[in-house]
Design a protein around this nucleic acid. Structure first.
Lengths: 325, 325
DNA sequence: CGACGACGAGTAATCGATTACCGGCGCAGT
DNA sequence: ACTGCGCCGGTAATCGATTACTCGTCGTCG
């Protein structure tokens, strides 16, 4: 920058003013400076600028599991919306681990991100204090944490789960196996509760997984090994649904003849299976956009309210009809 | 930091020395400083540190399309390896657009990333100059660019494509439709060339897509609309494969009875389709890891060589047998 | 007992920007 | 012609670290 100033015969202050579009510099001074910048191929050092202005134009996005296409899609949407507003996104992947998450929160705060988007891996709220202490705007995505006082963006699956319950009951299912998410995540608990509630008195067999593929397979195996087999499985996450499908295939069980299957969270390939899988679709992209917008609002000093976007049931035929003998 | 120094009754220099594990400070001084840090909840400002040390412990990762699970997986692997070495990853998504890519390269350089991993959206090498001028270590991932003098990490599909060609010929296919990638990407060109070469003299019908879903559908429609229909389609990317599958479904065509299908780049759901899809699997995770490691080596001043990891054919039965009447 | 070496810790320059404050110049009013 | 007001642009402090250089002190050796 000193070089540019010298080259243009002005001071660094003037260069800075030109760079930041201040009204002060004369058109010709401005031109000289711009020419010097061009000639020297000068690029301002964003670090120095950020140090001075305390703004990095960067968001931190902490995802609980990037292998999960649901989160990958969210990451994409967040990045898209952020970019549209001139922000970069630093991506961090907690791999569903609480410690990793805490480590990353710290790393992102240290890098002075202007805002933080977090899909909490667990309910453990310890990391929250650090964020609050640092005064960095925070938005929670997909999952909540107890005691969080920040905006939350998530999908509301209550209605969709109720619809699914209806649909299963109507199809004659009476033994339902649920592959639930971890009990220490809000989505893990809520989906199970809402689904159970919608079934009225009907009991379900529940096995908890961890929102990952292998756990879906294990859970499916366990459920199909019960003395009284479920006639349909409900996987509360696309990866566990994938694992369940693989396990059913391995066991030689045919969907929906031997056992039905429904999955929470749609993926493009579900309709291509035979039979196409009945799912609850989440508005992934909208969630990512909404979260980024909430964060921008927070940064602008507004008080964005929570966002709840509706998930919805898409019946495709993988739940079958039970023979009422 | 001044507060900490004052609180511990030392100078900022000493605080800094404690923080950076220098040998100098006495154990008791060290203890006093650490106590003060703890008490005040002090966290060092990474920006200031980076400004001084010219190291951000951050990689920039420029992906050509984050919707593509292939790249999402790569991103995950890169992030994983980077984290293992104490680096963060700033993620940028070019959406297969050259301008976007150039913009992002600049943004990442301005943020003084310690290294850059790029999956080039196109062959356009204009952005390369800026990177070279900035002296930031660069590694190319998945795709090359002409005139690039940096390490490249990619999958070598020649053998797998030759195997696929053999497999199709043996199955009796004589009219092969290829849904190729864009001609202005190295992967787009190479896969097509290598496949054609392996077919010997046999001509193929080629439609170029853009590595995205919709283009796969369009290409499939176009190919199936030819006067002499191909008996098998080869999609050179998983998203185009997905699009093709959707289009074939829409047209009421059954795989492999009406038309066979093979896809470049495996995805976990391909084996679940009926029939399971024959694919060429790429070592995605290894590519991500290798790329991050190459970058680390570059930063360490070494001269890592290019990495070529073998893709391999996985026959699953979606290519069928042609009736030899 | 004096001097020198070693080591711990402080002073201050520096990284590359932003910006409050101030000086100088030109123009207008009386 | 002199004063005053504006406006352009320079000087220098500042953001929060790192680190070369220096100083003071203590221990040891001759």
């Amino acid at each position: 920058m000193k070089d540019v100033a010298h080259h243009a015969g002005v001071s660094t202050a003037t260069v800075s003013r030109v760079l930041n579009g201040h009204a002060t510099p004369t058109p010709e001074t401005r031109a000289r400076v711009l020419a010097a910048i061009e000639e020297l191929g000068y690029r301002p050092n964003a670090l120095a600028r950020s140090l001075r202005t305390t703004s990095t134009k960067t968001f931190g996005l902490l995802i609980s599991d990037l292998v999960n296409p649901f989160f990958a899609e969210i990451a994409r949407a967040v990045e898209e919306e952020a970019r549209a507003h001139g922000y970069c996104v630093v991506l961090a992947n907690a791999d569903e681990s609480a410690e990793q998450q805490a480590t990353y929160v710290r790393a992102l705060l240290d890098r002075r991100v202007d805002g933080l988007l977090v899909c909490p891996a667990t309910d453990d709220p310890s990391w929250l204090d650090e964020v609050i202490a640092s005064d960095v705007p925070l938005v929670l995505l997909d999952r909540t944490v107890q005691g969080a006082t920040c905006p939350v963006v998530r999908a509301d699956g209550a209605q969709a789960l109720a619809d699914l319950a209806q649909c299963l009951i109507r199809a004659g299912h009476r033994r339902i196996g649920v592959i639930a998410g971890p009990a220490d995540t809000s989505t893990g608990r809520e989906r199970l509760e809402q689904f159970s509630a919608a079934l009225g008195g009907l009991a379900v067999d529940v096995v908890h997984g961890d929102f990952r593929r292998a756990s879906g397979a294990r859970a499916a195996a366990e459920l199909m090994d019960l003395p009284e087999r479920p006639s349909v499985l409900v996987a509360m996450d696309n990866l566990m649904g994938l694992g369940a499908l693989e396990e059913l295939r391995r066991l030689g069980l045919v969907v929906p003849a031997d056992v039905g299957l429904a999955v929470y969270d749609d993926q493009p390939w579900f309709p291509l299976l035979d039979p196409p899988i009945t799912v609850i679709a989440q508005p992934t992209v909208e969630m990512g956009h909404a979260a980024a917008r909430s964060l921008l609002a927070l940064i602008a000093g507004e008080q964005p309210s929570d966002v709840q976007l509706n998930a919805r049931l898409i019946e495709r035929g993988s739940c079958g009809e039970v023979d009422r003998g």
